[in-house]
Design a protein around this nucleic acid. Sequence first.
DNA 1: CTATAACTCTCAA
DNA 2: CTAACGTTGAGAGTTATAG
Length: 427
Amino acid sequence: MPTFALVDCNNFFASCEQLFDPRLRGVPVVVLSNNDGCIVARSAEAKALGVPMGLPWFKAREAARRHGIVARSSNYALYADMSNRVVEVLANFAPDYEVYSIDESFLAFDSIAPAERSTHAAALRERVRHWLGLSVCIGIGPSKTLAKLANHCAKKQLAGADGVCDFADLSRTALDALLARIPVGEVWGVGRRLAPRLEAEGIGSVRDLRDADPGRLARRYSVVLERTVRELRGSSCLQLDEMAQARQQILRSRSFGTRIYDLSSLREAVSHHVAHAAEALRRQGSLAGMLAVCLRTGMHEPDPSRYIGHQSLPLCPPTDDTRTLTVAAAHLTQRLYRPGYAYAKAGVLLSDLTARHPLQADLFAAPGPSPDSQRLMQALDGINARWGRGTLRLAAEGTTQGWQMKRALLSPRYTTDWAGLPVVRAV
DNA sequence: CTATAACTCTCAA
DNA sequence: CTAACGTTGAGAGTTATAG
């Protein structure tokens, strides 16, 4: 029987901000989504004040000022770098692991003796704290779903857990009592739609869900929920995915910092997204067979001034060349553009992805990118990797970029940019 | 009719 | 001064369409 450990960083984004700016220690801190839109992370102090997740910043700002809450724009360069460091540490504690998200990883704990698991996890926790200054919680269980749930218990310090919770350490009755106290919505895979429906039919706790009839749930809801129930019962249905699979589609979209009205700015923004999407495409060694562009006005715009447009174009032959993609995207943007609307967001989707180097060459397949194109794109990516994203780019992206997202409260890139290092001045 | 494509819904971080 | 509310990806299930 397998054993999974789920490692999850506590208040990850907010902790990163506090780590590099000592003035923020002990202070309520919130981190905002792209465009400084809404609150996506809260420090322990901010949670204690009852700051809700997802609150739009413009609604929170005044109360935040009164309570001395400090806000930061999200700084993905910083978080991604810290995330990689965390993964390096935990790889030393478990050779088989899956990076599940920027702040969570699953570890295979199968080869560790049951009695050792908690102490091993505690040592990992201590190492991350000591080396990186970040605090993590670890949940251990016989399925991914149970490991996630154990992690929840570790975080909430349920059942005497202090940062580590191994369900195997609990007696059957203690586990039953614990699961009876946890709302069903905490289960991985039970979201805001499913939870109320389950509650309405008397399945309010995790224990209720575990003890429900899987066959009936499969018929009434979905096979996904059935699988979740089996996982809650301790039979593992979801494996560890150590190899990150190549993406089946690559989407780049952003809300603008301010509303955009003119076609040329839209084309620039779309070109910018194409450049980033194509970079991601080449990084995973794929070619795109389809390109789509989306333009839209504000989400809460009333009907007559509301507009959402998508257009797509097949790419024959499939390509990863930013130039080809940019030209195609410009056409689509022009086709979509309707004057008079206040555009809030643009996006680009690459789909129908295929591998650039198929194992078995297809006799009838269209030829891939020309050697010239490949060399040029390699040079482009090489220069941008060395000197920073956007160092070399097509003129189509524009230079003023007035549509760039708002990040008024951005912290320095402490770990990935020399200019972000705090200066210590000798007195 | 079936097989597939296209689209919608849900979930997660 | 005002108005303002994230992004990306996966998978299942449903509906439309082609043959």
